[in-house]
Design a protein around this nucleic acid. Structure first.
Length: 575
DNA sequence: AATCCTTTGAAGTCG
DNA sequence: CGACTTCAAAGGATT
């Protein structure tokens, strides 16, 4: 893979906050839409504002963020506590009990402590270590490094109290997308050491780092110890993207293998040599993937899990019944999801908002404000996840999960008649967030898109822009292109490995609903509109604080942009 | 207890 | 091929 660059970090220089070029309309859209709502909210906010008096956020948003609020709001505090407690719990449960990482002695480092410096950066030694450890990690490596320094995500963690669990949970952990929670273990690996039990299931899990590629990092325990390249990405929630399979891994380091071949593999779903087919449906490697969730979608419970329950849907197997039992293999997370995971804690801490819907709105905006490089990282990461996922579950298809959730989702148009629709909820008008004023501050507020044009260069320039570079990929970076409202700009790192060119990328973009400028049209779905207003109480004062100089500048640009692009209301209207 | 809500992106389905 | 639908995470709010 392209190394992102090795730069140590600087590439990132661009933080989202700094460079945002992205999309245009995010703010605007919301703003325009929100305006009215905002006012109301403002009132609320103002009142709320009092809550936090302290935040004088200093200068940069970063700093502001960084500064952990001396005293976190009670809420955040609680949250933090939760995280910690959770981490603790896990530890106690044995997550970390014994590292059996045969191959990875370092994993055992008790303190993992700390590869990450207090500020979140990776210690040099750690870095080295990492590299040695995970040679495979490509991008990430860099990313990891960089992140450590980069103002962005990585530190965020530090900033937010919530985030830091240094020893409890490694930040990387989160990378593992498939949360263990839902993961239902198949059969407990007899060969594994019993010591580790899944907190929830009580089933023994193995911490073996094994297969998980960087993206699917190691077991929780392991994770904790090893800095993931994407460490910065990691949310601290303690979730793992792909948790470790309860079952053991037979292959010690499949992951590595994967990685090695990854580039090539990518194209080819899997190399035969890699995995022996498992009759049971276990992952070929025999490893239950974290993505695997117990049959009951949300309930994961089966402890017993039935051994072997893990079956690929496609597996010719036995009967459909099995389907029921079949573990639910989750979809790999996409770039945005990864981003959300990483950033959610931060946003929560900043805003104190608790509602995910609101937070997600913010995150969505921030996402748009990310620089291409940054987004590229996530796309890349997501791409890898998909690859890994496909390798792990060759037969799996997204279709397998269809219908498992009962969601009716927005029907808007589809079936629901207008009436329904209205009934449902979308009361329009109220948004969760007034505007970026609050939380999403940094990036979004400003600049998002501002520079998009400029950025390109940046991308090129910055090492980080791996994608770009290597990209042949086509990174469509052309943000500029981003037409209409949403930036689709996906420069998608094409999921398709094979075609690195990613032609697909483009296509994908297309898939997105194009934005319709249409104004409000959308009632139906304009995303921004939420049915339930969220009180801003949660806003953190800091968010409200005025932009720093830097920000101002950004604003400036934003301004310009604004003019040029007059509100594009970008609603994702589906229609 | 289950579902909604919200976000983006990927992948599936359907015409 | 395009439009549309599902699901992925998350967690408070709602039913």
């Amino acid at each position: 893979m392209p190394q992102l660059n090795g730069g140590g970090g600087d590439d990132l220089g661009a933080n989202d906050e700094m460079i945002s070029f992205k999309d245009e309309g995010e703010q605007e859209e919301k703003i325009s839409e929100n305006v009215s709502a905002e006012r109301d909210l403002d009132d609320v906010k103002s009142s709320l504002v009092n809550e936090s008096e302290n935040n004088s956020s200093s200068s940069d948003s970063e700093q502001a963020e960084r500064r952990p609020q001396p005293r976190p709001d009670s809420e955040s505090y609680e949250k933090t506590r939760d995280y910690f407690s959770e981490a603790l719990r896990r530890q106690q449960d044995g997550f970390f009990k014994s590292p059996h990482y045969p191959g990875y002695p370092f994993l055992m480092i008790p303190d993992l402590t700390n590869p990450y410096l207090s500020n979140g950066s990776l210690s040099p030694s750690a870095r080295t270590y990492l590299q040695m450890k995970w040679p495979l990690l490509d991008v990430p490596g860099t990313a990891g490094l960089k992140d450590s320094r980069s103002p962005t995500p990585g530190h965020l963690s530090n900033k937010v109290p919530v985030v830091q669990h240094a020893h409890h949970v490694h930040p990387l952990t989160p990378l593992i997308t498939y949360s263990n929670e839902r993961f239902s273990p198949g059969t407990p690996p007899s060969h594994l050491s019993p010591e580790i039990l899944d907190p929830k299931t009580g089933i023994p899990r193995t911490p073996h780092p094994s297969e998980l590629s960087p993206y699917y990092p190691l077991s929780p325990g392991a994770v904790g110890q090893i800095p993931h390249p994407l460490g910065w990405l990691v949310p601290q929630q303690g979730q793992h993207m792909y948790s470790i399979p309860p079952g053991g891994f037979r292959h010690p380091y499949p992951a590595l293998a994967m990685n090695a071949s990854m580039s090539s593999l990518v194209s080819s779903r899997f190399s035969p040599h890699m995995v022996p087919h498992h009759p049971h449906g276990l992952h070929q490697t025999g490893i239950p993937h974290p993505a695997i969730v117990s049959p009951a979608i949300k309930q994961e419970p089966n402890n017993d899990g039935g051994g072997g329950s893990i079956v690929h849907s496609k597996s010719p197997g036995p009967a459909k019944k099995e389907e029921d039992k079949r573990p639910h293999i989750k979809k790999p997370l996409n770039a945005f999801m990864l981003y959300m995971k990483e950033m959610r804690a931060k946003v929560v801490a900043e805003c104190t908002l608790k509602e995910s819907a609101a937070i997600n709105q913010i995150l969505g905006r921030r996402w748009h404000s990310l620089s291409r490089e940054e987004q590229a990282k996530y796309y890349e990461l997501a791409r890898k996840e998909r690859q890994l996922h496909s390798q792990l579950y060759p037969g799996w298809s997204a279709r397998d999960n269809y219908g498992k959730r009962k969601k009716r989702k927005r029907d808007n148009k589809t079936d629901s008649t207008p009436e329904d629709f209205s009934s449902r909820n979308k009361k329009q008008c109220v948004q969760y967030l007034p505007s970026e004023k609050m939380c999403d501050s940094p990036a979004s507020s400003h600049g998002s898109m501002l520079d998009s044009p400029a950025t390109p260069s940046a991308a090129l320039a910055s090492p980080a822009a791996p994608a770009a570079t290597h990209s042949e990929q086509a990174q469509p970076l052309s943000l500029t292109t981003k037409p209409e409202g949403r930036s689709h700009h996906h420069f998608p790192l094409p999921g398709k490995p094979s075609g690195s060119s990613s032609s697909s990328s483009t296509s994908s973009a297309s898939s997105q609903p194009s934005i319709s400028l249409s104004i409000g049209s959308s009632g139906s779905q304009s995303a921004p509109i939420l049915s339930r207003p969220i009180p801003f109480t949660s806003l953190h004062p800091s968010m409200l604080s005025p932009p720093t100089s830097f920000h101002q500048a950004a604003l400036h640009s934003h301004h310009a942009l604004f003019q040029s692009q007059p509100l594009s209301l970008v609603t994702k209207s589906t229609d």
